[in-house]
Simulated scan of single mutants.
Amino acid sequence: MYSELNEFKKYPISEDVDKWVESIWKMANSIKCDVEILSDNGFSFSFGIRHVKNEFTYVKFKPEGMDEFYGYWQPAMSGPAPLLIHTPGYSAEISTHPELVSQGYNVLHISPLGYATPNGPDESKQRDHTWPVLADTITSHAEKGYKLWLVNCILAIKWAMEQSEVIENRVSFFGTSQGGGCSLLLGSIFKNKGVRCVAADVPFLTNLPMAKCVGAITYNYEPLCSIDNIDGGWQALGFVDTISHVNRLNCPVLLTAGGKDNICPAEAVKSFSQLYSGTCSYNYFDNLEHRCSREFATLLQSWVRMYA
């Protein structure tokens, strides 16, 4: 079904996707990025929460020629240990993962493009009350938006890989919604560069033509209406659609989908699992809406234990 949709026929061919990934690496490797470890660990007395001083901490990344952005570094209690990278949903939330740290993993949450800060969201970067990363991807024909988002991730991951607590060339990716979709993209980008596994929870950016066809909430596609070249807009989406990266991935992939998810429909997520030739676990939950769930948290811990 998905291959017959007109939008899908406008997607880039695999060779162009490869070149796009290479251009992301070229950009990331050309940027000098200073790093500052912040003293504030991010927990507030107003919530009655505090953590052991200097264990978990914000990290400010200052890439030359780009906006500053932040990460939240959660090192393993003893190392060296594997590295897990968490990326945020479209709301740009920052999250912590002490349960994974206690099981022996280093965890870096990355908040690309400076959307979220230790003091909350930077609303000056919003456009029409939402984050513009998807719109910028479309209007720039995939030269900005998620391309810069992923460059930020590479810069942060390179820093994390240099930390003494981290086992060399052993990195895995996980996230929910946008974070799930971008975890799959990072798995593709880090092919043959140490990636161990991916865990993508109700992943956005997965078979977008099918998602639109089966009734996904269409605000995600409104930027297409604001540009002159509709074909070019769908081609831009093709670079960040995880379906375009299915043949690049070569690591175990965990997927979740919800029967009541009207943003990232289960049919679209399932289509990825049907196309992927590697180790893949597709998990469907009939009553799950579009959100991070206990089911995913449980599956994630087992998945990284097996493969990370």
Rank of each mutant, 00 (worst) to 15 (best):
V253K: 06
L249E: 06
G215N: 11
E289T: 06
A297C: 06
E295M: 07
V214K: 07
G238I: 05
S277W: 07
A257S: 15
A236R: 01
Y219R: 11
K270I: 08
R291D: 12
S273M: 07
P265Q: 13
G278A: 07
K260P: 03
P265T: 12
N247W: 05
L237M: 15
S293V: 07
Q301G: 06
G238T: 05
V240I: 14
H290W: 05
C292P: 03
C213Q: 13
D261T: 01
L275P: 00
A216R: 08
R248V: 02
S244G: 11
D241S: 05
S273T: 08
N220T: 09
P252S: 01
T218V: 04
L288R: 12
N287S: 12
S226C: 08
D261C: 01
L288W: 08
S244K: 06
L255K: 00
I217M: 14
I227S: 06
T298L: 10
N229K: 08
D261E: 08
W234K: 10
C264K: 06
L237G: 04
C213Y: 13
P252W: 01
V240N: 10
E295W: 01
C264Y: 07
S302P: 03
C251Q: 14
S302R: 00
T218F: 09
S226D: 14
F239T: 02
T298Y: 04
P252Y: 06
N283M: 04
S302E: 14
S277C: 13
R291F: 10
G259W: 09
R291I: 09
T298E: 07
H245W: 14
L275N: 09
A297F: 01
G259P: 03
R294V: 14
V240G: 10
Y282D: 04
A216Y: 10
H290F: 08
G238Y: 02
I217W: 12
P223Q: 00
F285I: 10
W303S: 03
G258T: 00
G238N: 07
R248S: 10
L237R: 04
S293Q: 02
F296N: 02
G238L: 06
N283I: 01
G258N: 12
G259D: 04
N262A: 12
C225A: 15
L300N: 06
D228F: 09
L249Q: 01
V269A: 12
N250R: 08
K260V: 08
D286W: 07
V253C: 09
C251G: 10
W303P: 11
Y276Q: 00
E295A: 11
F239A: 00
L299T: 00
P223L: 05
P265L: 13
A266Y: 15
L254P: 03
A236K: 02
A216Q: 11
A268D: 02
A297V: 02
Q301H: 02
V246F: 13
S271W: 14
A236M: 10
V246I: 15
T298V: 11
H245P: 02
L255E: 02
N287D: 13
S271I: 09
I243V: 08
C251I: 14
N247L: 07
S281H: 15
K212A: 14
C225F: 08
W303N: 05
N287F: 06
N283P: 03
